[in-house]
């Protein structure tokens, strides 16, 4: 049996990794959300070329593996003169990949706001920007939150891949502990499991709170 002390002795190393994981996760989520909105709105554009560009981005990043995207951004792009730090590469790959999925969330949420809402806004002579900002988005937003919650949790789990492009994240630290401290596989990987779960659950709680706030007063 492992003593409490050995467990505690593992924590500092894992915490160092946790900081990196959280950093990649939060930055990646921001990039993903921004790209999701940009691409999602582009797919609703009345200009065919804009729609096409967004569709190309979405299909490309959904249709290829995240791991290979990471490798390309970190190991291949330098050959084209684009030398990114491991953190930037990791954040970018995660953001591009989950942003592609997220754009579908944005697009379908906006499309699910009834046509009558736009018509009422036109009848009140609201400009397209005003219609979107004051009428459509506030109604689409609550619909986006649950699927975005799913994506953020997926993204969190995806961060474990950045250990493969030299980032010392949580998973990387766990793996290195395994090789430096013997016979502690069970507690190390148990802790790893628990830490990921706790972050994921925190994301769930935050999204739930956001959803509650976004739907105030609605029956």
């Amino acid at each position: 049996m492992t003593s409490l002390e050995t467990l505690i002795s593992l924590l500092p190393t894992l915490m160092k990794g946790l900081v990196v994981t959280l950093e990649v996760f939060l930055l990646g989520s921001v990039v993903a959300a921004v790209l999701a909105f940009i691409a999602g709105l582009m797919r609703l554009s009345k200009f065919r070329i804009v729609r096409f560009l967004a569709a190309f981005y979405v299909e490309f990043f959904r249709g290829t593996s995240l791991l290979i995207q990471l490798f390309w951004i970190f190991y291949v792009l330098p050959f084209f003169g684009l030398d990114l730090s491991a953190l930037t590469a990791g954040v970018l790959a995660l953001g591009l990949n989950y942003g592609a999925y997220g754009s579908e969330v944005v697009r379908s949420a906006i499309l699910s706001v009834p046509r009558g809402q736009t018509e009422a806004a036109i009848a009140l002579n609201m400009s397209p920007v005003l219609r979107f900002r004051r009428i459509i988005l506030p109604q689409a937003w609550p619909l986006m939150i649950p699927p975005f919650g799913n994506l953020f949790i997926e993204l969190l789990k995806g961060t474990s891949l950045v250990s493969l492009i030299t980032l010392s994240d949580l998973t990387f630290q766990a793996m290195s502990l395994r090789t430096t401290v013997s016979k502690l596989e069970i507690p190390i990987f148990a802790l790893l499991l628990i830490i990921y779960f706790v972050i994921a659950y925190a994301v769930t709680l935050v999204m739930r709170a956001l959803e509650k706030k976004a739907t105030v007063g609605r029956a």
Binding site: N125, M126, S127, P138, G217
Partner: peptide, 19 residues
């Protein structure tokens, strides 16, 4: 086609204020 995310009063003031 009322705006479900706005109160009755806000439904009526929306356009006067913003348009």
């Amino acid at each position: 086609n009322l705006f479900p995310h706005r109160t009755v009063l806000q439904n009526v003031t929306e356009a006067p204020i913003h348009v």
